[in-house]
Amino acid sequence: MKFLRALFGTPANALLSVAMIALFAATVPRFLRWAFLDATWDAMSRRACAPDGACWAFVKARFPLFIYGRYPATEHWRVDLCFLLLAIACLGCLFAGRRRGMFLLMLLVGVPVVGGVLLAGGIFGLPLVETADWGGLMLNVILSFITIALALPISVLLAFGRRSSLPVVSWGSTAFIEFWRGVPLLAVLFMGLIMLPMFLPDGMTVPNLVRAVVVLTLFESAYLAETIRGGLQGVPSGQAEAAMALGMHHSQAQVLIVLPQALRMSIPGIINIVVDLFKDTTLVSIVGLFDLMGVITQSLKDPSWVGLATEGYTFAAVAFFVCCLLFSLAGGFMERQFGNAGPGKR
């Protein structure tokens, strides 16, 4: 009854409700019929698909390409193992309670080292896989992970640098941060891929993946630095003063007392930046890397599947939506666990 009154209580509200219901009635059944009832799930090519429904057979046939890119099919288990490790480390950090530290160490040290060896190969009898063959959704995840792992320490330095009393250090950090926050990511990615070789010694070549990581890291570290600076400003000065009154050196007080509290307070901001970064890794498809968007655009040129842009890009949207939502949920959980305890509350 209360629900009905909320929907139709006043004339204006009733009008709004009727308009919304009409809108749903016009769109939802059509969409459901297209996406599920009339859809084709198994077919060899586009011509075998029902003309009025979605041709999910295309996504099914290209699924390994969408996830792993051109990574050799016999080596897919290495990628799977990497993601398994990553998932265990992340879940451990979230749910392990007191033993969280062990999983954090695994996430920050174990996963990059083991993952790097597994993915690249070339030792321990694992065949070498060139980074040019890495692609698909896997590339988006890898790019995001490496970028965050590198950008976090840099951003902490930048945040402290911007607050430094030394004019050269604070001006330098400010100029760096404002530069990267003032330019579009796509423009710097584009320039980085073309220009980086120009500033390196003759004969030194860098894979495209590394160039993209360098640009993404510099870009994200500027945004992260501002978030962490906000956290640093939120820690009452009494915390550092109390630590120094106990005989700690200034840098000890900052690193051991102020920084952990600041990081805890900047968790929501950091989560937002990570989600944005994950979405922004799609931009590498414009500069010639084959991430999920890149491989989908490429598969749409396949003559037997031509013209299936709706299905391909819908898959991309759903894949990103699920990943981002999972991440937001994990972030919210993390925030509730140890984010909202203000300074000195524990």
């Binding site: 989600v275 979405k279 922004d280 799609t282 931009l283 498809s285 414009i286 968007m293 655009t297 842009a309 890009y313 819908t314 991309a316 949207a317 990103f320 939506f321 981002c324 939502l325 937001s328």
Partner: peptide, 10 residues
């Protein structure tokens, strides 16, 4: 929760 690029291309 979906990339801007996906939306524009879609």
């Amino acid at each position: 929760n979906t990339p801007q690029l996906v939306q524009i291309i879609f």
